[in-house]
Design a protein around this nucleic acid. Structure first.
Length: 561
RNA sequence: UGGGAGAUCGUUCAAUGGUAGGACAACGGACUCUGACUCCGUGAAUCAAGGUUCAAAUCCUUGUCUCCCAGCCA
């Protein structure tokens, strides 16, 4: 997966693993896992973790399991499982058949719980949720022990059996680990292991009415799978003592080591599952795969490539610092990848009609245009040229500013891959004053050649022959939020109202008529585009703008975007 | 407030007691049939104060700031 010419990545986790390898701590075994909860689509933050875990497995000749952490049936579904599987494969990783579900271990986990009860280290607690919270104490005050903490092993066993059998309503009892209600780490204050929840599970159906909590299920699932490094995000640091506690009580031998790294934050977007779900459910976006979404599905539909996302993951690194990565870095990685692989084409987004007065009325020429300026191996394509063309509306200005290299009164410009044309006149709408078309003459000597007299033509613009133009819809995407860090409360107020602009009357060159959705092109001078995976149809293409080209003219001219 | 973690260019990641470096961003310039790409260049940082040391981003002390934890979520 890693490019052979790139140096292998280093970070504190790999340092840790390499130390273990040196001292032969785990007999050379490197076993990791990626454990998503299937209650949503994975996003760029998950992609970071996917690249980390699968990357480590590949780098050290180890394994990476895919495990669905499906311990809370509320909100989980097969649709999400399938999307996660699809997205990870698309990113370029494979778990070689090691797909697991925490729910596979429900019976095993139950037996572990029974064992803990028998060891006097777990008890059924009958406090309600509110009482449990009160007993937990606070940051500064120790908790108080539950009155049910001293129940006998027999009674606990009986109660827990009946919990499983469905004899009690939701919330009536929970199973708790008997640890220390005075622990300074609140996670250790008799944490809940099982709750009663009558919620059908997408895999186990109604087999269970009790479900294990994350803290109980996750560490044991890791241990059961022989995981050596359980890599997770920083917010689980407080849970590590509990992770170790459960494993130590129940599974002898080699123990997985939990290592925490900082989750990814990206500017101008949100990555919390809660907010992503809300964007989808409240229809701020068209779905999980809306091209503006930071989900893998959204980025795929937008036209981002797996290579670009992997490159990004490598570029941001792995550390324990809280971070807010500039979305410009992601865009840079996308451009860098697409610049190499995307064939060039011409498209006119906001057409302005141009008539070449001295070009024969019914003549059509075909120009052989290179598909890539730096890579001749990508071949050429034929692009028709005729008397009436479309150019980009902002490539002509009646009263151009300084440094403007394009068309205007008295000016010449090169038509990309074609002739040099000279402005002659314009036709305006008498009512509105809008320019309806402009008239030019061409210099027949300039096909594939500079002007014979040596004069410099400063500008090159793109164009489409009117008779051969393929009408297309083009969707221009911008960042979903207008502030770098949308506020937690009321973040929807920060939504960018201009994150989507639909241009219905664009023209693309003939070669793009039946383009395959998802394939990225560079529309020269505009940006990278691909036909939409859902809405594009042969003969009626719909293009998404993946990312615009860098535009140093815009900075000069507009002082901004 | 108790506990846990973290502070290095605008951003992000390095430097593991020995020249603070890369990438992104910014800014200049060269090149150009894409104002793209590429190339060259510029500016830009060790949270603070003490201490140890020939030498400190790194070790010690004190302080400051940020993040995480009081779900029967993960």
């Amino acid at each position: 997966m890693t490019q052979p010419n790139n140096p292998p990545p280093t970070d504190f986790i790999r340092d840790f693993i390499e130390d273990d390898l040196r001292t032969n701590k785990n007999d050379g075994v490197v076993a990791v896992r990626f454990p998503p909860e299937p209650n949503g689509y994975i996003h760029i933050g998950h992609a970071k973790s996917v690249c980390l875990n699968f990357g480590i497995a590949a780098q050290y000749g180890g394994t990476c399991n895919l495990r669905m952490d499906d311990t809370d049936p509320a909100g989980e579904s097969l649709e999400y499982v399938e999307s996660i599987i699809h997205d990870i494969h698309w990113l370029g990783f494979d778990w070689q058949g090691r797909l697991f579900f925490a729910s596979d271990y429900f019976e095993q986990l139950y037996q572990f719980a029974v064992a803990l009860i028998k060891a006097g280290k777990a008890y059924v607690c009958s406090l309600n949720a509110e009482e449990t919270r009160e007993h937990r104490g606070s940051f500064t005050e120790a908790g108080t022990e539950s009155p049910y903490r001293k129940r006998s092993v027999e009674e606990n066993l009986d109660l827990f059996t009946r919990m499983r059998a469905g004899e009690f309503p939701d919330g009536a009892h929970v199973l708790r680990a008997k640890i220390d209600m005075a622990a300074s780490n609140i996670v250790m204050r008799d944490p809940i292991m099982y709750r009663i929840k009558r919620e059908p599970h997408f895999r186990t159906g109604t087999d269970w009415v009790i479900y294990p909590m994350y803290d109980f299920a996750h560490c044991l699932s890791d241990a059961l799978e022989g995981i050596t490094y359980s890599i997770c995000t920083l917010e689980f640091e407080n849970n590590r003592p509990l992770y170790d506690w459960f494993v130590e009580q129940l599974i002898p031998g080699r123990r997985p080591r939990q290592i925490e790294f900082a989750r990814l934050n990206v500017s101008y977007t949100v990555l919390s599952k809660r907010r992503l779900i809300e964007l989808v459910e409240k229809k701020y976006v068209s779905g999980w795969d809306d091209p503006r979404m930071p989900t893998v599905a959204g980025m795929r539909r937008r036209g981002y490539t797996p290579e670009a996302i992997r490159k990004f993951a490598a570029a941001i690194g792995v550390a324990k610092n809280d971070n807010l990565v500039d979305v410009a870095l992601l865009e840079h990685c996308v451009r860098e990848d697409l610049n190499e692989r995307a064939p060039r084409a011409m498209a006119v987004l906001r057409p302005l009609r141009v008539v070449i007065d001295n070009y024969p009325e019914n003549q059509v020429e075909e120009f052989e245009c290179p598909n890539h300026p730096q890579n001749p191996e990508m071949g050429t394509r034929k692009v028709p040229f005729s008397r009436v063309l479309y150019i980009e509306n902002d490539d002509f200005l009646e009263d151009p500013p300084k440094k403007y290299h394009r068309l205007g009164p008295g000016r010449e410009v090169r038509l990309r891959n074609a002739y040099v044309i000279r402005y002659e006149s314009m036709v305006k709408n008498e009512q509105t004053g809008q320019i309806e078309e402009i008239h030019c003459t061409y210099d027949p000597e300039t096909r594939n050649a500079p002007p014979a007299d040596g004069r410099k033509i400063p500008g090159v613009i793109h164009w489409i022959a009117a008779d051969h133009a393929v009408p297309a819809e083009v969707r221009l995407y911008d960042r979903l939020f207008r502030v770098p860090e949308p506020k937690d409360e009321n973040y929807t107020a920060d939504l960018n109202p201009d994150s989507l602009a639909i241009l219905a009357k664009c023209y693309v060159e003939a070669s793009l008529k039946d383009t395959i959705p998802g394939t990225g092109y560079q529309f020269e001078r505009l940006g990278y585009f691909c036909a939409d995976l859902k809405d594009s149809r042969p003969g009626k293409p719909v293009f998404n703008r993946i990312v615009p080209l860098r535009d140093s003219w815009a900075k000069i001219a507009g002082g901004g975007k």
